[in-house]
Nucleic acid binder design. Structure first.
Lengths: 231, 231
DNA sequence: GATTTTATATGATAATTGTCAGTTTTTCGA
DNA sequence: TCGAAAAACTGACAATTATCATATAAAATC
């Protein structure tokens, strides 16, 4: 087993609350964890499922979504390298509120809940760190609520592209490194797939976006930003 | 100073994370806290403001809202007796993300952040309890996101009334105990005030709601529920 | 490489929701 | 109790967005 498989040496840990664990706690996590690869489109867990642990993302991206009554999947959040999924459910001992599906091929570590819960009760630094992350997610969620209700679909799509660029970057030709299907983008901004496609076409015509095969790129970032801000 | 002003004896504490504090910690909180009355319409704090502590609601209701670019206030949450406001900002040491304005006359206790922060670092039970509450709010926020993007204005208004009845109750004649203005309801569901008024009128015509002066009451709860569920 | 499936695209139309303008009603302070 | 201000209401219309139908392009499968 090479060193990359030990949590103690995992860079990913720097981004999440596991960094507040003691050496011994981390050793316990590392000994009990299970590495998994998840192929694009596969589910890590489904809404309503009881989770026996959390998933730490080593590589790839997962969408966290919830099925609405009208049969559409609303994507609430994208989880990336370093993020821990399923924390909330484990902490409050409820079944999962969201489904997690891989957007591209992923590498994750499954950490059984015991290794987490024990530390939560004994190491206040760790608990505090988890709390800080949760507080950050709550702020983000509140902001999403405001955007959802106060911005138009066009503004939200513009924002989505800016988000993708800032969080996942683009290649040397200016194409986004994370490619989402039009349907996924529609499910992020909460609109119909057709409306989403139409607006992306419009953005291309206006010289805000460009495309090459499946890839999409931002041409005029300032223009998109102005649009998102309502100008 | 009568016993009701001591946190140790405050019933409200049962509903929030303060119940996980030790006697000594609670004493410190109680000694440093400041009781305030806030009149309807007055702000407890504003978005962007640095908070020096948290507010524990003893009585009354506050709306937590955020101003959007188009000048509208989106109400993200209502905070009631027992809830603690401003926790998030104090924990992550950021300025407030939301404004808090009293919906009716309120009685709150201001607790300086020192009394909270110290305990967060030393008492894992308390930290865990705060974490549990935050996790609960995060789930609620995720659900709001899904509703906002997947339900129609009509459905969201129906839901809002059911929410008001279930969380604040109604009097013996069936009128809601918490009366919000049409504008506030519109800002909760994220729609224009005129649209909100129109739909409420429609609900009254259909025998789903009734009104008497400022008061509104639910006549046909099942009907409202069916509507909210999309039937 | 042909074929089936899936994703993207576009048009036509309907439904929903917002905006503006104006009226009526209620509230509240002088 | 009067009068101003705020809240509730209504109509007409415009803008946004969803839905349905269908076409084309791309990807996956055999």
């Amino acid at each position: 087993m090479d060193h990359k498989t030990r949590c103690e040496n995992c860079i990913v840990r720097q981004f999440n609350s596991l960094r507040a664990m003691t050496k011994e706690e981390l050793k316990r996590v590392s000994d009990s964890k299970l590495m998994k690869t998840v192929k694009k489109g596969e589910a890590l867990f489904e809404e309503g499922e009881k989770l026996n642990g959390v998933y730490c993302v080593r590589d790839g991206v997962s969408k966290l979504s919830k099925l609405s009554a009208n049969g559409k999947d609303q994507i609430v959040k994208l989880a990336t390298k370093g993020e821990v999924m399923g924390q909330r459910s484990v902490i409050v001992e409820e079944s999962a509120n969201l489904s997690a599906v891989a957007v591209n091929d992923m590498e994750v570590c499954f950490i059984p809940k015991e290794a987490i819960i024990n530390t939560l009760h004994s190491n206040p630094d760790f608990t505090y760190e988890v709390l800080r992350h949760m507080a950050h997610h709550l702020k983000e969620a509140d902001d999403v609520i405001v955007n959802m209700s106060q911005k138009t679909v066009k503004q939200r799509i513009a924002e989505a592209f800016l988000y993708l660029k800032h969080n996942y970057g683009d290649d040397d030709e200016g194409y986004l490194l994370l490619t989402l299907s039009r349907e996924d983008i529609a499910n992020v901004v909460g609109t119909a797939t057709e409306s989403c496609i139409r607006i992306i076409s419009e953005f291309k015509k206006k010289g805000l976006l460009k495309s090459s095969g499946k890839k999409l790129g931002i041409v005029n970032e300032k223009g998109l930003q102005d649009l998102a801000d309502g100008f």
